[in-house]
């Protein structure tokens, strides 16, 4: 595998750990986490950046639970730390999809045993299919419901039904599609390398910040 792709993979893991592991966060550490996370979010192209919004309901739920069960002011600090951690790690995971791309997955699928590799590829494919389906369902629901009226509150309901129903209905289609290909083995994939200067900067930044952190704490 290309060395830079490997470096990107490790960078994403390192950045994730940097934001996830420490339980007590200093101001400096928090600031560097937020900075890294901003850089990663900046890496997400165009309107895909809205995917970060998925994290908001998570943060509200988890921090909300903690808030309800906490009694002392000291714990409020901990709630903020949790919220920041979820946001940073979550957005790094989301942008890793764009930072590393599907290239690492192809390589992994080849490196893993056959069944696991196929499973990984199908899993990824299902996600791509869901993103496509997501757009279609939203378009179709919007065309049938009057968004200006109360009907718009039905969207989540019909959306979940449509999504689930589509998946069940498609089970035999998935099966047929896969079996008809009769894939004997996943041979070495062709990997498309992309090396932007922004990516190189990001890799360097993560390494510098993480090593500074380790040196300061040693």
């Amino acid at each position: 595998m290309n060395a830079f792709l490997m470096a990107k993979l490790l960078t994403a893991i390192l950045a994730f750990l940097f934001c996830a592991i420490p339980s007590q966060m200093s101001i400096l550490h928090t600031a560097s986490c937020l900075f890294l996370c901003a850089m990663f979010i900046y890496r997400i192209p165009g309107f895909h950046r809205t995917r970060v919004l998925i994290l908001v309901p998570f943060i509200i739920t988890i921090a909300g639970m903690q808030f309800l069960s906490s009694s002392q002011p000291r714990e409020y600090h901990q709630i903020a730390v949790t919220a920041i951690k979820i946001f940073c790690t979550g957005s790094i995971v989301i942008s890793a999809r764009f930072f590393i791309g599907t290239e690492a997955v192809k390589w992994l699928a080849h490196a893993l045993p056959h069944t696991a590799g196929i499973f990984l590829l199908i899993f990824l494919r299902t996600f791509h299919y869901l993103f496509r389906l997501n757009t279609m369902i939203i378009f179709q629901l919007s065309s049938r419901l009057n968004l200006a009226s109360k009907e718009k509150y039905y969207i989540p309901k019909y959306y979940s039904i449509a999504m689930l129903y589509n998946q069940f209905r498609a089970m035999h289609l998935y099966r047929n599609g896969f079996l008809s290909r009769s894939v004997a083995e996943i041979s070495e994939p062709e990997i498309f390398f992309s090396e932007s200067s922004f990516d190189r900067t990001l890799v360097l930044l993560v390494i510098i910040i993480a090593s500074l952190y380790i040196i300061l704490h040693a």
Partner: peptide, 10 residues
């Protein structure tokens, strides 16, 4: 439903 790889070439 019959695609497996994330790009056409592969």
């Amino acid at each position: 439903y019959q695609f497996i790889m994330p790009d056409c070439l592969n």
